[in-house]
Simulated assay, not measured.
Amino acid sequence: MRVGLFVTCLIDMMRPEIGFSTLKLLEEAGYDVIVPPAQTCCGQPAYNSGERALARDLAEKALREFEQFDYVVVPSGSCGGMIRVHFGDLFRDDPELMTRYGKLRERVYELTDFLVNIARVTLAEGEFRGPVTYHDSCSGLRELGVKAQPRELLAQRGVQVQEMKDCEHCCGFGGTFAVKYGAISTAIADEKCMNVQASGASTVVLGDLGCVLNIEGRLRRTGDHSTRVLHIAQVLAGDI
């Protein structure tokens, strides 16, 4: 089957290695993976900022580029949530777009959800050794129901997870929230970083690059240069 990989603009621009790890996992699961070369943003920053016209243009573009595939896989809960949950709000006044989107929507999956519930992979034990702690990114958890899936995959790889306090709490990023409410964002990030450190794990793993950059950036700014912050695709693919 043909999988369209929605790389996300953040991964493409800042951590392309996560995209390659995702590609590796999907190909090893037996899928023909296509990365549409003209793909750009899912429109989430514009949508969250009230720029509905721009967000809709980007959503229509994504729909055109990805509706041809059997599945669409996104290594990001926030972008996956935008496509699977919020595109409907942007298309609600256009029956033709809503019909096309309705056919696509149920084929859009966050990476770990796809690997567990569609590909039904069984991963061999890897070389990575924990312990790690896991941060549940807000959109993946609350919009897409991603909770058990990454932990199941880590267990298959033989990675021990030591749960941190309040693992489901926000890291403080929230896209434009971090720009508009910097002081509040920083306080939330500080609490998250303290919980990561208190877990006793040397690595925090998560499924959204925005959270990776926010947590890693705050750890480094506060003097922690040893705690690793990794996207789950990197750990599962053994690319670390």
Rank of each mutant, 00 (worst) to 15 (best):
A187C: 06
K192R: 13
A29C: 03
K192F: 08
I118M: 06
I184V: 15
V212T: 10
P131E: 06
K192L: 09
F91C: 11
L141K: 10
K192G: 04
R221T: 12
F114S: 07
F87T: 00
G30I: 13
Y134N: 07
D113Q: 14
R92K: 15
G210L: 01
G174D: 06
A155R: 14
A233I: 04
F91V: 07
A198M: 09
L153S: 00
S78A: 14
D89V: 10
I188A: 01
K103C: 10
C193R: 07
R100S: 03
A233H: 09
R220C: 07
R218K: 12
I240T: 12
A59F: 07
A46V: 05
V159T: 02
R120Y: 05
I184Q: 10
R105G: 06
T186P: 00
I118S: 11
N214R: 06
A62T: 15
R129T: 14
D12N: 11
K192I: 00
C167M: 13
Y181C: 03
L10S: 03
K165Q: 14
Q68G: 12
D113C: 08
D12C: 05
T176S: 14
E51T: 04
F173L: 08
P16G: 07
I188N: 02
L25A: 01
M164C: 09
C193H: 00
L10N: 00
I184G: 11
Y109F: 15
V121I: 09
E96V: 13
V229F: 00
G43D: 07
T176M: 13
V132M: 07
R221F: 10
G19H: 03
E106C: 05
I188V: 15
I232F: 10
E125Q: 14
V85Y: 08
E67D: 14
Y109G: 05
D57W: 10
N214D: 01
P45H: 10
A233L: 08
R84V: 00
S139R: 12
G200I: 12
R228H: 11
G172A: 10
R92A: 15
V7I: 14
T112F: 03
Q197S: 14
M98V: 12
V235Q: 09
D57K: 15
L25Q: 00
T8Y: 04
L90D: 02
R220Q: 11
I232R: 04
C171G: 07
G145V: 02
C170H: 04
A29K: 00
G217E: 01
Q234N: 15
V196H: 06
D12V: 04
P75Q: 06
L97W: 01
T22F: 04
M194G: 15
H225P: 05
A38K: 13
D93R: 14
L26A: 01
K24V: 04
